[in-house]
Computed example of a mutant assay.
Amino acid sequence: MTATTLRSAAAQYCTFWAGGLCFGIAVEGVQEVLRYQSMTPVRRAPAAVHGLINLRGQIVTALDLRCLLGLPARDDSALPMNVIVRSRGEVVSLLVDDIGDVIDTAGLDLEPAPSNLPSTVQEVVTGVLSFPETILLVLDADRAVDVTTVPDPSGGTP
């Protein structure tokens, strides 16, 4: 193991896509994945907060991962999927483009994030895992859901 590689902390990752990038969160941090859920808008919330969903009686904030990472907006005709994650004792929904598989990464080394990624993505990625068909960006859910660091040029949802 070299100074630039780290042993992958998790053995399995739940994978998903946002803005053409493949992300993964350790399965221990994912509660469930769901198809699109209707949302209640939150007035004056940051742009990344798309609304609240009712998850079997629990109110969950839905955050658009594309917006959080400064990626181009999703086409209005494409409905997002929900990755329900646990972060800092809370349950949060990350709105993503598509859900992938749960993949086993046992024995793979976590490499540093490439410098050509947008800085907003680099800030929330703990490293990458290389596969023949894609590069998996390992997402730190705690950093990703931090809406206080997201620039909000729109001034929030009216």
Results as ranks from 00 to 15, higher is better:
residue 1 M to D: 04
residue 3 A to M: 12
residue 4 T to Q: 13
residue 6 L to G: 07
residue 7 R to H: 09
residue 7 R to E: 15
residue 9 A to C: 08
residue 9 A to V: 11
residue 11 A to E: 14
residue 11 A to Q: 12
residue 14 C to P: 05
residue 16 F to A: 12
residue 19 G to H: 09
residue 20 G to N: 03
residue 21 L to K: 02
residue 23 F to T: 12
residue 23 F to W: 12
residue 25 I to K: 04
residue 30 V to W: 02
residue 38 S to A: 07
residue 39 M to E: 12
residue 39 M to P: 05
residue 40 T to R: 13
residue 41 P to H: 13
residue 42 V to H: 00
residue 43 R to D: 14
residue 45 A to Q: 15
residue 51 G to C: 12
residue 51 G to S: 14
residue 55 L to Q: 15
residue 56 R to I: 07
residue 64 D to V: 05
residue 64 D to M: 07
residue 67 C to N: 04
residue 67 C to Q: 10
residue 68 L to W: 01
residue 70 G to M: 13
residue 71 L to F: 09
residue 71 L to C: 12
residue 73 A to T: 13
residue 73 A to D: 15
residue 73 A to G: 07
residue 77 S to T: 12
residue 79 L to D: 05
residue 81 M to I: 00
residue 83 V to M: 02
residue 85 V to C: 01
residue 86 R to A: 01
residue 89 G to P: 03
residue 95 L to A: 08
residue 96 V to F: 00
residue 97 D to M: 09
residue 100 G to M: 13
residue 101 D to Y: 09
residue 102 V to P: 09
residue 107 G to F: 01
residue 115 S to Q: 09
residue 116 N to E: 06
residue 118 P to D: 10
residue 119 S to H: 08
residue 119 S to V: 00
residue 119 S to P: 00
residue 122 Q to P: 06
residue 122 Q to W: 02
residue 122 Q to G: 03
residue 123 E to K: 13
residue 126 T to M: 06
residue 128 V to L: 07
residue 129 L to W: 07
residue 130 S to I: 05
residue 130 S to K: 12
residue 130 S to M: 08
residue 132 P to A: 05
residue 132 P to C: 08
residue 135 I to K: 00
residue 135 I to N: 09
residue 138 V to I: 14
residue 141 A to D: 01
residue 142 D to R: 01
residue 142 D to G: 12
residue 145 V to I: 11
residue 145 V to E: 15
residue 148 T to R: 14
residue 148 T to G: 05
residue 152 D to A: 08
